[in-house]
Design a protein around this nucleic acid. Structure first.
Lengths: 173, 173
DNA sequence: GTAGCGTAGTTGAAGGCTTGACTATTCCGC
DNA sequence: GCGGAATAGTCAAGCCTTCAACTACGCTAC
């Protein structure tokens, strides 16, 4: 679907007969797989984020923060730990928590065991907001993802995701 | 991995015996599949975008624009068409093209067949920038994606992506 | 031909994200 | 304890995206 141009470049290199490590261009099958994955992933994330944002006023990024906190013991987490859990930079999380604080859904608390650290704590209001948003989000995930897939496809999705995670987790951010 | 809380809510609803359409919560298997997919997709996109941005100074969003134009007849496309192809809003694309214009990689040209329209045209400099960036991007996609997957997994990835695309394309943005 | 409506694209303000610098605190070796 | 390195988190500047006007053109019908 893409990059006839780059396929052509590949031909040029191949024509030179050199076995040096020129670009390992994608073949037609790989192109199709890559495009399908990329487009579907972008569209799906976009869709889910839009649904959530428009119906609840909570972006997916903020939702992830609330979920992470709701599952943590005492509904509290260290800022860094929370950032890792949400695949967020520290800076981004710090901003996000500031905004959630303004909404009264999270509060900061100095960490007793480490004076440098801060705890982000989910408030009752925050928990209530999450409880209200969760059904809407789940329905959206069902509609756009699970309702479209067979059990075998769901298994393949998990397998694929876990395979990639094993690699990506071992890679420096 | 997530949402014991929401699972618990589900129990509560189920306990009431009512068959009304309460939230269709995810079961444990679905949770794992969903989390694996979401995390891997976010990490992978992040990784690819970072690699590309740091090594070439071109973000993935801009790269997509350049690729789309390079494949178009005459290396030119209508703005709206280009926006659709890049999964971008018109406004976003308009800003992006403005910045690519500043770099001298794209120029705008009024459309002859429709006075309202504009054509975005890839310049020779833009094409050269793309030719320089493409090998780096391809290598990144290989390293983080295809090198990690078996042929069967690649096939599953394509199947999954195409299935989701069929649904998402039919859905209003 | 011109009123009215839909389409194509741009613009500017508001807010989110990233980067890099900065402060404060803890850990470690001596 | 004490100096230096590492860690936790915040902050400010700049870029990117979104949203809501807004301009300009084309299409249709009267």
């Amino acid at each position: 679907m893409t990059s006839q141009v780059w396929a052509a470049s590949q031909e040029a290199k191949a024509g030179s007969g050199a076995p040096e490590g020129g670009p390992r261009w994608l073949d037609a099958e790989e192109q199709k797989a890559w495009r399908a994955w990329l487009y579907s992933a972008q569209l799906l994330m976009d869709r889910l984020d839009r649904d959530l944002t428009h119906q609840t006023g909570i972006s997916h990024a903020y939702y992830e923060v609330l979920v992470a906190l709701s599952e943590a013991p005492g509904r509290a987490m260290r800022m860094s730990e929370l950032a890792d859990r949400c695949l967020s930079s520290r800076s981004r999380l710090s901003h996000a928590v500031s905004r959630l604080e303004e909404r009264g859904w999270v509060r900061r608390q100095v960490c007793e065991s480490d004076g440098r650290g801060q705890l982000a704590v989910l408030t009752d209001d925050g928990f209530a907001a999450l409880e209200a948003a969760a059904p809407i989000h789940v329905e959206s995930v069902r509609t756009h993802l699970f309702d479209q897939l067979s059990p075998a496809q769901v298994a393949a999705m998990r397998n694929l995701g876990e395979t990639l995670l094993r690699h990506l987790d071992g890679t420096a951010p």
